[in-house]
Simulated assay, not measured.
Amino acid sequence: MNNILVSIDFDDCDQLIIDKAIELGKAFNAKLWVIHIAAPDPDFVGYDAGPQNERDFRANTLKKEHKQLNDYALQINAQGIKTESLLIQGSTIEMVIEEAKKLNADLIIIGHQEHSFFYKAFFGSVSEQIINKSKIPVLVVPM
């Protein structure tokens, strides 16, 4: 096992995922790729006309997320594990699968939180969809 993709979403349980990734990274002497999939920009944000305050808010949010990813990578590197962080915008499921393929990941580590029936009916389960679409083994860390 050479590459492990670790997908986080900046919730209170990220440390559980990071700890499991460190454990596996050490055990297999693997490189960790810590990624976060940020929401895509709204249609009016970017080069098209749109409210400046919305563009500024999105830029600040992405900057904070990028810093947090780098902090996670530094924490893992301090454990003697090669680590890189990636902040990507797009659809979560598709981007996790795509990045895992690009990085030749041998394993994907994701978290799973139990949600209500109505939440699942409207939004589905990200972890279930990744498991169903991935050709790469997926380790699900319960939250």
Score class of each variant (00 low, 15 high):
Pro142Arg: 11
Ser7Tyr: 06
Phe44Lys: 10
Gly25Leu: 02
Ala121Asp: 03
Thr92His: 02
Ile109Val: 05
Ile97Arg: 08
Leu86His: 09
Ala27Lys: 11
Phe118Ser: 12
Phe57Pro: 10
Asn132Ala: 15
Lys31Asn: 14
Asp43Glu: 08
Ala78Trp: 00
Leu69Glu: 12
Leu107Gly: 06
Val140Asp: 08
His66Thr: 13
Ser134Asn: 10
Met143Pro: 04
Trp33Arg: 12
Thr61Ile: 14
Asp43Lys: 07
Glu94Met: 10
Gly50Met: 04
Asn3Gln: 01
Pro40Asp: 05
Ile131His: 11
Asp19Gly: 02
Ile109Gly: 01
Lys64Asn: 14
Ile76Glu: 00
Lys101Trp: 02
Thr92Glu: 15
Asn70Ile: 07
Gly46Trp: 11
Lys133Gly: 11
Thr61Val: 15
Phe122Pro: 06
Gly80Ala: 05
Phe123Gly: 12
Asn2His: 10
Leu16Gly: 09
Ala100Tyr: 08
Ile8Ala: 00
Lys133Gln: 15
Pro42Ser: 03
Val45Tyr: 08
Ile8Gly: 01
Glu84Ala: 12
Lys102Asn: 11
Glu84Leu: 12
Thr83Pro: 00
Lys102Thr: 04
Met143Gly: 10
Phe57Glu: 10
Ile81Met: 06
Thr61Trp: 09
Asn70Asp: 05
Ile8Asp: 07
Thr83Gly: 05
Gln79Glu: 15
Leu74Asp: 09
Glu23Gly: 03
His115Val: 13
Phe118Met: 11
Glu99Cys: 08
Glu99Gly: 02
Leu32Asp: 09
Ile4Tyr: 01
Met95His: 06
Lys63Ala: 14
Ala78Lys: 05
Cys13Lys: 12
Gly25Thr: 02
Tyr72Phe: 08
Ile88Leu: 13
Glu99Ser: 14
Asp56His: 09
Leu16Ala: 07
Asp56Lys: 14
Glu84Asn: 12
Phe122Asp: 04
Asn53Arg: 11
Asn77Asp: 13
Ala38Trp: 04
Asp14Ser: 06
Ile22His: 01
Asp48Arg: 13
Gln89Trp: 02
Ala39Pro: 10
Ala100Glu: 08
Glu94Val: 05
Lys63Gln: 15
Lys64Gln: 15
Gly46His: 03
Phe28Ser: 12
His112Ile: 02
Ser116Ile: 09
Phe123His: 15
Ala27Ile: 05
Asp11Trp: 00
Ala59Glu: 15
Glu99Ile: 08
Ser85Asp: 03
Leu103Glu: 10
Glu94Ile: 07
Trp33Gln: 02
Asn3Met: 00
Ile108Lys: 06
Met143Cys: 15
Gln129His: 11
Val140Trp: 06
Lys67Ser: 07
Glu65Ile: 01
Arg58Leu: 14
Ile93Tyr: 14
Ala78Phe: 00
Arg55Val: 12
